[in-house]
Computed example of a mutant assay.
Amino acid sequence: MIDLIFLEDDPDLGTELADFLGEIGYRVTFVTSLAEFQAAFEPGRHHLAVIDVGLPDGSGLSLIHDLRKAGDRLGIVVFSARGTTPDKIEGLSIGADHYLSKGCDLAELSATLEALCRRLELASRQPWRLELGPRRLHMPDGSAVALSQQDLLVLRCLMETPGENISRKQIIQTLGGDYLSYDQRRLDTQMRRLRRKVFDCGGQELPVNTLRNSGYRFYAEALVQA
Rank of each mutant, 00 (worst) to 15 (best):
M1H: 12
I2Q: 12
D3S: 13
L4W: 15
F6M: 03
F6T: 02
F6H: 09
D9W: 04
P11F: 00
L13Q: 06
G14T: 01
E16T: 15
L17Y: 06
A18C: 03
A18H: 00
D19S: 12
G22Y: 00
G22V: 00
I24F: 15
Y26E: 01
R27Y: 12
V28D: 01
V28G: 02
V31I: 01
V31C: 07
S33H: 05
L34Y: 01
A35N: 12
A35R: 13
A35D: 14
E36Q: 15
E36P: 00
E36I: 00
F37E: 09
F37A: 12
F41K: 09
P43G: 14
G44E: 07
H46I: 13
H47R: 13
H47F: 01
A49K: 05
D57N: 13
G58W: 04
G60W: 05
G60F: 11
I64K: 03
H65G: 04
L67E: 10
L67R: 09
L67D: 08
R68Y: 15
R68F: 13
A70N: 08
D72M: 10
R73C: 13
L74I: 12
G75D: 06
V78H: 08
F79P: 03
A81S: 09
A81G: 10
A81Y: 04
T85D: 10
P86L: 00
E90I: 10
E90L: 11
I94H: 03
H98N: 14
Y99S: 09
L100A: 07
K102T: 13
D105C: 01
D105I: 00
L106K: 09
L106V: 14
A107N: 11
A107R: 15
E108P: 01
S110H: 10
A111H: 07
A111W: 02
T112S: 11
T112L: 07
T112M: 08
A115G: 15
A115T: 14
L116G: 11
C117A: 06
R119L: 12
L122R: 08
A123K: 11
E131C: 07
E131D: 14
P134G: 07
P134H: 05
R135H: 15
R136P: 01
L137A: 05
P140S: 09
P140G: 03
D141V: 05
S143D: 08
S143C: 06
A144T: 12
A144S: 15
V145D: 02
A146G: 04
L147I: 09
L147D: 02
Q149L: 14
L152N: 07
L153A: 14
L155Q: 03
L158V: 05
E160A: 09
E164D: 11
S167H: 09
R168Y: 14
R168C: 08
I171H: 00
I172W: 04
T174V: 12
L175R: 01
L175A: 03
L175M: 07
Y179D: 12
L180N: 06
Y182L: 11
R185T: 11
R185L: 13
Q190D: 04
Q190Y: 04
M191Q: 02
M191D: 06
M191K: 03
R193F: 05
R193V: 09
R195K: 11
R196D: 14
F199K: 08
D200C: 00
D200E: 12
C201F: 00
G203R: 06
Q204D: 00
L206R: 01
N209A: 07
N209D: 10
N213C: 07
N213Y: 08
G215H: 05
Y216V: 06
Y219G: 02
Y219D: 02
A220H: 03
E221H: 12
L223F: 04
L223K: 08
L223W: 01
